[in-house]
Design a binder for these strands. Structure first.
Length: 192
DNA sequence: GCCAACGTTGGC
DNA sequence: GCCAACGTTGGC
């Protein structure tokens, strides 16, 4: 098995093939620091929002396809790296942000996730994977960030499935739902 | 490499 | 619980 890799928020790689690993994704290093705002809101959700959570069907996950050394470790993990793993499967670890972690907990097996290349020469969506984490396919055509933004702006103005995108409203969120509801998911899918 | 955005930490 | 300092993210 290839060595475990970590990135900043995006994350990656491949310890236990076939498992999305939200449980160990975010750790409390000391176990005694204060709860973050995100953690608190998480707890509240559990308390009084049970059952009324929106259910998402498609996701977007960011990772860095270009080499960059962080703490002596190369964090590179692009879609080609996932594709190259045994069974084209890996484990998406190293996610530290609590909201991102919570989204990972909402994921269901075999849902689709778009593989976004970030912090690189050509940021954008490169391909598709299944929540498993398994490579599914490359997109017919790479969709650069600029194009995503164009669609997003248009949908915002005229209505459309991409009118709300965490990609543009929440900086630094490495795991995010792409859309809610079956209809809009389908629309998005056709799109791509 | 720069730096704006923003989440986290931790003293108070 | 506030908030300044700090660290990370990620486009450019």
């Amino acid at each position: 098995m290839p060595p475990k890799k970590r990135t900043r928020s995006s994350a990656k790689a491949n310890r236990n093939a076939g498992a999305v690993g939200p449980d160990d994704a975010v750790q409390n290093k000391t176990g005694k620091r204060k709860r973050s705002a995100a953690e608190n809101s998480d707890l509240e959700k559990k308390k009084d929002d049970e059952g009324s959570k929106p259910s998402y069907s498609h996701w977007l996950m960011k990772s860095e396809p270009e080499s960059r050394i962080e703490n002596g470790v190369d964090v590179k993990f692009g879609i080609e790296d996932l594709k190259a793993l045994p069974n084209q499967r890996g484990c998406w670890d190293g996610v530290r942000n609590y909201q991102a972690r919570n989204f990972m907990r909402d994921m269901k097996l075999d849902q689709q996730s778009f593989f976004y290349h970030s912090n690189c020469k050509e940021p954008g969506i490169a391909g598709l994977m299944k929540v498993d984490v398994q490579f599914e396919r490359m997109l017919k055509r790479f969709i650069p960030l600029s194009e995503l933004k164009k669609h997003h702006m248009l949908h915002k103005a005229e209505g459309g499935p991409l009118k709300n995108m965490f990609l543009f409203s929440r900086a630094r969120l490495s795991v995010q739902p792409l859309t809610a509801g079956k209809r809009s998911s389908k629309q998005i899918h056709n799109f791509i």
